[in-house]
Each structure stands twice: as structure tokens, then as C-alpha cells.
Design a protein around this nucleic acid. Sequence first.
DNA 1: GAGTCGTGGAC
DNA 2: TGTCCAAGACT
Length: 354
Amino acid sequence: MRETAKAADLLDWYDVHARDMPWRVGPARRAAGERPDPYRIWLSEVMLQQTTVAAVTQYFNRFTARWPTVADLAAAEDGEVMGEWAGLGYYARARNLLKCARAVVAEHGGRFPSDHATLLTLPGIGPYTAAAIAAIAFDAPETVVDGNVERVMARLHDIHTPLPAAKPALTAASAALTPAARPGDYAQAVMDLGATICTPRSPACGICPWRAPCAARAEGTAPELPKKSPKKAKPVRHGIAYVAQRSDGALLLERREDRGLLGGMLGWPCSDWTEGATADAPPLHADWQTLNEEARHTFTHFHLRLRIDVTQVDMTAAPQRGRFIPRAEFQPGQLPTVMRKVFDLARVSLVNFG
DNA sequence: GAGTCGTGGAC
DNA sequence: TGTCCAAGACT
């Protein structure tokens, strides 16, 4: 009979191997009584949703430098926040980030609530993020279940039921292990373990603090767990992006609606993106020139190939959609990646963008 | 439960 | 190149 996994063994490992992150108060500082800033924990957890630590770090540092408190963020303009989020993806997170910051200020006196149920009522905070904030920022005995925890628990108990059906069992397994003491460090420890040792491919079982109690390690099934339901193939969609430059150098851009794909982000006016034939939809009447090369981009559920049409217009141009952004105010870094790809291909055809 | 919603890195 | 994947939320 294998021994039972103990939270204490994982915490001992975490005390030595905890990774350094800008928002994290490590085990040593935590033991000395230092508390994490709930604002920074919340911001980091939202950014980390389906996103790697490496990608998040730079965005986190820029956000906190620009908006040091939740009140600062709540007072920001929508476009400023969306522009700062550009490139990080899943833009509903940024829209909900602002809604949440404003709700914390308006309804909670500028202080984040500490209990799971109240956190869950805030925009962009789901079961995982509510538990993470409660556990990490307030040391509440909540069970955090993210992709790492699912993988670690599936292996620890050699659970072959595919996700998402296995989720309740994996949650129960993790809850049974959550200690009354240091639940915040425990949550971070499981996630660090999943990110560095109990990895999706080629797990480093030989140096795992839970190698002795791990059922999948004993069965040799660790690399194939957790099982997942088969994914749907991605279709290819086609569309046209319109890049118009005015004689003063200004570029025609439009703010997308606050919902759906790239909602709230700045971008080039586009036709619809469809699997069938593309219908022309230029934002103004002009002599459009089609570039030789298409922009290619893959979203979560489809591949996109964008034809790029470019034109030069005079100062009398009156676009039906979007507005001209002065050359000095145009910042490619505020565009989502697919729109930045279009710009990179179109810029050789533009004046003053050599 | 299944679909929508980004991106960059690893292999 | 293509595929999978990452500290999920929302509909």
C-alpha cells in the first residue's frame, strides 16, 4: 500500500523551490508576517487565466506601474486599459477587469472582499479566481482548482476519466488535501509543482516531492494523464482588412464593439470573417490596392487568412466607419496581435512608416 | 455540456 | 509547418 500524500511534504518542497514572481509574497516573507496585496493578487490571477507566467510578468509590471491601486485602475479610461492589455489576449478579461475594479470601488469601498462567495459576484472572477484570491491574499482555506491541480490530482490518484467529466472527482481529491494551515502557500505550491515538475509532457517524477504516494507514477501512466475529450478541428475563415492612410499620415482605425471576438479593441476596419466567400466592405470609397501577401493568424477555434487592401486618400475623405488617428498618436502596440500583423505587412506600402 | 474567446512558446 | 498547451470565465 502506497503512503498517503501529505500537504506538509509539498509545503516543505515549496519552502525551498517557490518561484519568484512580482506579485508573490514567498514563503519566507509570508512566514515573517508579510501579506500580499489583494489588488496585485487579483490582477495577476486574471492575467494568468489561460496565460503563462512569462507572458504575464511584463504586463503585470506595466499595469501596476501605471495603476498602483484598484482605485487608480477604476478611474482609468476604457481605451487606455484595452491598449495596455493589447497582445495578452482574451480581451473580455480586460473589459471585466475594469468592471470589477469599478465595482470594488463603488460597492466595496475600494477594498477587495475576502470571502469566496462575494468574490464570485464580481465580473471576471469565477470559481478558480475567487478561490485563489481568498486563499493567497487572505489565507482562507479554499481549494484552488486550475489546470495544474487537475493534472496533479489525476496523476496522484491515477484517474482516467476524461476532463471535464473528471472535474468533480479532481476537486474533491484536492479539497481533501488542502491543509487548514497555509492554504495560500499550499495552493501556490500545487500550481508550482504542476508548472515545473508535474508537467503535461515528460514529467520529472524522479524529483517530485509526491513521487512516493503517486499512483500514476507507480502505474507508469503519468505522462498520459489527465485524459481529455477530443477537440474539434479548426475551420479556415477568410476576410479583408482595410488600411487607409490620409495625406497627413493619419490612419483609419475603428474601435470594435464591446462584445465578441477582440471586443473593445482598436483595429483596422474589416469585412466579415467567414468560411465561405468574402463580401467586400470597404469603410470608404477609394482606389484600393490588394497586397500580395495575406495575414495569417490562428484563434482558439478557427484559422484566419486576411487579405489586406491599402489605399491613400486626401483630407476630404469621409469614412463610413472608424476614424482617422493622427500619425503621432498611432501606437501599433495598442493593437491586438492579428491587427499588428496586418500593419506589419501593410507598412511598406504606407508613407512615413519605412 | 459545449461553444466562444488570444497568444506565444514548446516540440 | 501543425498541434498542443497555459494559474478560466461566460453564455
